[in-house]
Amino acid sequence: MATTTAPTTQSLSHAVRWQSMAEARTVEAMIDYRDAEMARTALIESSLRRKIERSAIALTIGEATGMSEAQVQLRLSIADRVRAKTPQVWDAFIDGRLDFSRVRDISAAIEKLRRDESIARLDNRVLAYATSHTGAELRQWLRRFVQRVEADLAVERAEAERAERHVSVAHGDDAMAWLNAYLPSHLAAAIEARLRTAARKPADPDDDRTVAQREADLLVAWCTSSDAATSAVDANIAVTVAADVLAGAAAGFAESTDGRWAVPASWIADVAATGSTFWHRIVVDPVKDDVLSHEYLGRFAPDTLAAALQFLHGVCQAPGCMVPAERCDLDHRIPHPHGPTTGDNMGPLCRRHHNLKGHGLLHWSTSQPRPPTKPMVIEIYQPAPTIDVEYVPA
C-alpha cells in the first residue's frame, strides 16, 4: 500500500536553506570565474586588449546566468565586501543560514560604517539577529546599529542629506502627475499623521470618496489654500530617545516607535524649542515591562494605558509583523476576564493576527511577547494640549 508523507514546517525550512545555499554557490562560481579571468588576462601583453577582455567578464557571467552586467557587478561587489570585512557573515551565507537579500542588506550597512572596530562588532553581533528575524526587521536593526555605533558620523550624514531637501513634480499619462518631496523624516511623519487623521474623520453621507482620495484632496487643499497652509499641524508622533542623548551628553538619534525612521535628536530638540510640543514620559518596569502599575477593571484599557502601550511597542507583537501599533487592537495575552487589564498583560496585535490568535492559529507564546526596547518615549503634539501626563510604576 502506498504511503504519503505529510509536509511539515521543517521541510519548508530545509527548502529555504537549500535555496540560500544555491544562491551562495552561484555567487561563489561568479567569483571563481572572475578571478580566473583576471589571472588569465594578466598575461596579455597589450594593455588595451587586456582592458577590453576584462570589461567583458561581467557580460560573459551575465550571459551564463541570465543577469544583466549591472546585476553581476552588484553581486560581485557585495561578495567582495562581505567576504573581506565580515567573515562570519560570509560563512553563514555559504552555509545557507543567510540568504542573499540579508547579505545585501548587511553589505549596505558595512558600506556606511567607517571604523574597523564597528565593522568587527557588526560581524560578531548581526548573525544572531539576522537568522531569527525577517528581512524588514533586520533592515531596521542594521539602521539602528549604524546610528548607535557611529552616531557622530550618522548625524553628519543626516545633516548633509537635510541640505538636499526638495520637492519635484513628474507629469505622467492620463492627465496625472506625481508630487514628490524629499523631507526630514519627522516632518514627513507629521504630514502623514495629519493626513491619516483628517481623512478618517466622519464624512458627509454624500461623500463617496475613498480614504486615499480624501487624503490626496486634503493635501491639495493645504498646499493651495492660504488659510489651510497657515493652520497648526495637528499631528501626534512618538519617538524614543536615550537619556544621555536627550541630555546632549552624546550624539544620537530619536527613533519612531514603529522603527520606520529616525532623525538626529537635535532636530527633535529644535521642535521642542518652539514651545508647541507636549511631552509624555513613560517609565518601564525593568522586571515586568509594565508601563503602568495600575490594574483596570473591565476589558478595555483606558486612553492613557492604550497610548503608553502603543508608544512602547511601536508595532504589532506577532512575530515579524510591522503594522504600526496605532492601527492595531490591544490584546490581552492572557484573555480577559482571566487575564488582567494591565500593561504587562496587554500589547498591540493587528486585526488579522488578533483574529488568528482568537482562533488558536497564532502559535505565539503569551508568556514571551516581543520585548519592548524603548525605555523612554517622547510624544510630540502640535498644537500643544493643556494637560501633561507622566507614567510612573508604583
Rank of each mutant, 00 (worst) to 15 (best):
L142I: 04
L142F: 00
L142G: 00
D152N: 11
D152Y: 04
L153D: 15
V155D: 10
R157V: 05
A158D: 11
A158H: 10
E159Q: 15
E159V: 09
R162Q: 15
A163W: 01
A163I: 11
A163L: 15
A163Y: 00
R165E: 06
H166M: 10
H171T: 13
H171G: 07
G172R: 04
D173G: 13
A175N: 13
A175M: 13
A175F: 12
M176G: 00
M176C: 07
L179K: 03
L183S: 01
S185P: 06
L187D: 14
A188K: 02
A188Q: 04
A190V: 01
E192A: 13
R194I: 00
T197D: 13
T197M: 08
A198C: 08
K201A: 14
K201V: 11
P202Y: 01
D204N: 11
D207N: 07
D208S: 12
R209P: 01
A212F: 12
Q213C: 03
E215Q: 15
E215D: 08
L218M: 05
L218G: 00
L219M: 09
V220T: 01
A221P: 02
A221E: 10
W222P: 05
W222M: 14
C223S: 05
C223R: 06
T224W: 02
S225Y: 08
T230C: 07
S231L: 15
S231H: 13
V233T: 13
V233N: 12
D234K: 06
D234N: 08
N236V: 03
I237T: 03
V239G: 05
V239R: 11
V241W: 02
A242N: 09
A243F: 00
D244L: 01
D244G: 04
L246M: 07
A250L: 08
A254M: 12
S256A: 15
T257A: 14
T257L: 02
D258L: 14
R260C: 10
V263N: 03
P264C: 07
P264E: 11
A265E: 06
A265Y: 06
A265T: 03
